[in-house]
Design a protein around this nucleic acid. Structure first.
Lengths: 192, 192
DNA sequence: ACCTGAACACCGTTCAAGT
DNA sequence: ACCTGAACACCGTTCAAGT
C-alpha cells in the first residue's frame, strides 16, 4: 500500500533528481550542449517525462539555479562563522578555489546568456562581495575602501576561475597554490 | 567586365562579412543563441548560402576567432610601444576596460564550451599575462614574483569584466572608474 | 501520479538547381 | 562564383494514451 504524498514509489524521478542531473551536465558539457533527451537518458526515462516535472527548459534552469544558490548560501554561512576577519578572508578565497564542481559550474554558467542564470550569478556575487566588504571593515578599512578592496578580491577570484578553466596558466595544483598565496599576501593586510 | 579574383561583385557576402556579423551576434545574444538563419537574415541572404563560405558552424567559429585574435593582437602591440612600464601596466588595465564590444564578446565567449573558442581565449590570455610579466620585471620584480603579480592583475581584469556584465556591482561608469583606480593603486607599485 | 510515443516547429547540414 | 529551396536528422514542446 502506498501512501499519498509519500515521496517514494521508488522508480520515479523527482524534481531534485532532474536538477542534480542537469547541474552535472551543465558543469561537464556546458549549459547549451546539455540537452533534455540526454539528461533524460542519464536518468533512464524519455524526454517526454521531463514535461511532467517542468514547464520548459527555462523552468529547469530556474529550479536548478535555486538549488545551486541554496548550496552556495550554506557554504558562505559556514565561512561567516570564522571569527578572525583575516582568516575569514583567506578562507573565502581558498575555499572557493577548492570546490571543483562548483567552479566548473560557475564558469559554464557565466556568459550563458540565460537571464535566470545571470540573475542568480549576480545575486550570489553581490552576497560574496558584501561578506568580503564586511571583513575588510573589521580590519579598519573605511566603508568605501572596504567595498573597493572586496570587489578587487572577488574579481581576482572570478578571474582565476576562468583562467584555470580556460588556459594553462593555472592548470596545476602547484600553480594554483602559488597564485592563491600571492593573492592573499597582496590583498589581505598582514597582522601587523 | 569583371576580373577574376576581384573581391567585388558588390552584392555578395565575404567570409569577413560573415565573421563580423557573427561576432556582433555573439556579443549581443551569446554564442549559442546566435543562429545561422538569423545571421544570414542580418546579411540579407538565406542560410543555404552560409555553406558556400563555411564548412560548418565550427568552421565559422574558428574563422571568427582568427579575426578576433588578430584584432586583439593589434591592440596589444600598440600598448607595448609605451615606454614607461608603470604607465604601460596602467594603460593595459584601463584600455581593456574601455573597449565595450571586445568585453561583451569576451564574456559571451568564455565558458562557451566550444573548443576552438576556448583555445583562442587561452592563447590571448597567455599573451596578455606574458606582456604584464615583462612590465613587472622592468619594475625589478624577480621572474616568479613578476609572473605571479601578472596573473593576479589579469585575473582582476577578467573578473571585473564578468562582474560588469553580470551583476550590478560594476554597472556604472563611476563604479568602474573607482574600481580601476583602486586596482591600479593596489597592484602597480608607485613611483617611489 | 508519472511516463511513453507520436506530432510539430525550428536549426544545422547537404545538395541539386538556379544565375 | 555565389545563392536558393527542398530535404533530412535532431531538439524543444505539446499532448493523448498508457500504467
Amino acid at each position: 500500500m502506498v501512501k499519498r504524498k509519500d515521496k517514494a514509489v521508488a522508480d520515479n524521478r523527482t524534481v531534485a533528481d532532474w536538477c542534480e542531473a542537469a547541474l552535472d551536465a551543465f558543469a561537464s558539457k556546458g549549459v547549451h550542449s546539455a540537452s533534455i533527451p540526454e539528461i533524460a537518458r542519464a536518468l533512464g526515462v524519455t524526454k517526454g517525462s521531463f514535461y511532467w516535472h517542468f514547464q520548459s527548459l527555462d523552468d529547469l534552469m530556474a529550479r536548478a539555479m535555486e538549488k545551486w544558490s541554496d548550496d552556495d548560501q550554506e557554504v558562505l554561512a559556514q565561512l561567516e562563522t570564522i571569527e578572525d576577519p583575516r582568516e575569514r578572508l583567506a578562507q573565502m578565497f581558498r575555499e572557493s578555489m577548492a570546490r571543483k564542481r562548483a567552479q566548473a559550474l560557475f564558469v559554464a554558467l557565466s556568459g550563458s546568456g540565460v537571464p535566470v542564470v545571470e540573475n542568480t550569478i549576480a545575486r550570489l556575487s553581490e552576497q560574496r562581495v558584501r561578506a568580503l566588504t564586511e571583513a575588510y571593515k573589521q580590519l579598519s578599512f573605511d566603508a568605501s575602501a572596504a567595498r573597493e578592496r572586496a570587489l578587487l578580491v572577488y574579481s581576482a577570484y572570478i578571474g582565476a576561475l576562468h583562467l584555470r578553466a580556460e588556459s594553462s596558466a593555472l592548470d596545476s595544483q602547484r600553480k594554483m597554490e602559488s597564485y592563491v598565496k600571492h593573492a592573499v599576501e597582496t590583498l589581505i593586510p598582514s597582522d601587523k
